[in-house]
Simulated scan of single mutants.
Amino acid sequence: MSRNSIRFIKLIRSFSTEATQISKPERIADELLNLNKFERHDFTILWRLKMGLDRYGAPVAGPGPLGPTSSDPTSAAATAAATEKTAFDIKLEKYDAGAKIKIIKEVRSFTDLGLKEAKDLVEKFPCVLKKGITKDEAGPIIEKLKELGATVVLDN
């Protein structure tokens, strides 16, 4: 955040019950109108974080008026469908020592790693080989590594 944004935040926090005719919301609105474009951007990010909103503006699931209620079965089903994991990690648990070179070559084929980086990654098992891929992309990779003698899991 910029220095002006930090000063603005401190200014908002320093508001106290002063004996003025202007109400606190009016003072805050006046200060917001005086911010430049970058300060407004920093303020909106800070505001969303303080309000518990994610980067897309949807409320974070939890108890309260915006979260799911236990009395509504359709909202529970919708929440379960919305939280279904779509991105997975491929995790190498262990491998046969004789198949180490083949596994390193296979790791290089589906990552952008060089020979040394792939070797170091495979040698420090258990480790995550690839992050954030779909089940469809992970299936062939896992099958190939299992054929080579590695124990691989799809991690949530």
Score class of each variant (00 low, 15 high):
E31Y: 01
L49M: 14
T134G: 11
S14R: 10
E143S: 14
P126D: 08
T79F: 13
L113D: 01
A61E: 07
F8H: 08
G57W: 11
S23E: 12
K146F: 00
V152R: 01
N4I: 02
R40Y: 03
I9E: 10
W47C: 12
A76E: 12
I45E: 11
D112N: 09
D30P: 01
I142P: 02
K131D: 04
A81K: 13
L148M: 07
R7M: 03
L121E: 07
V153E: 13
P126A: 02
T20G: 05
T17C: 05
R108C: 07
P65N: 13
N34V: 04
G52R: 08
E26Q: 03
I101D: 11
D155F: 13
D136V: 03
D136E: 14
V128T: 14
R55V: 15
F110P: 04
T20F: 06
D96V: 01
D30S: 10
R55K: 06
L32W: 01
I142E: 07
R55I: 15
I6T: 11
A76R: 12
N4E: 14
P65M: 15
L49A: 11
P63S: 09
L129K: 00
A61D: 02
R55Q: 08
S14W: 00
V152H: 03
A61F: 02
I90C: 07
A61P: 08
A87T: 12
D30W: 07
I45W: 12
A81V: 05
S14F: 04
G57D: 05
K135C: 03
K100C: 00
A78Y: 01
W47T: 09
E117V: 11
D120H: 07
D72G: 11
K94F: 11
I103C: 05
T74L: 15
F43K: 08
K124V: 04
D155P: 12
G149K: 06
F8W: 08
G57T: 05
L113Q: 07
E31G: 07
R48P: 00
K124G: 14
D112Q: 05
F8E: 03
V60C: 09
G98C: 04
T74K: 12
V122L: 05
A99R: 06
G52M: 02
T69W: 02
E137T: 11
F43S: 05
N156E: 09
I90L: 15
F43G: 03
I104H: 01
L129A: 08
L46E: 13
I9L: 15
H41G: 06
A99C: 06
E84V: 11
D72F: 02
M1A: 12
N36V: 04
V153S: 10
D30M: 13
K146C: 01
P140I: 02
S71W: 13
D112K: 15
V60A: 14
T20Y: 00
E39I: 01
I103Y: 00
A138H: 05
L145G: 00
S5A: 14
P63N: 15
T86W: 02
L129F: 02
K119H: 04
I28N: 09
S23D: 03
D54C: 13
T69R: 14
L154Q: 05
A61I: 11
R108I: 10
G52L: 02
M1C: 06
L121Q: 12
L66C: 10
Y56I: 10
A61T: 07
K50R: 08
T83A: 14
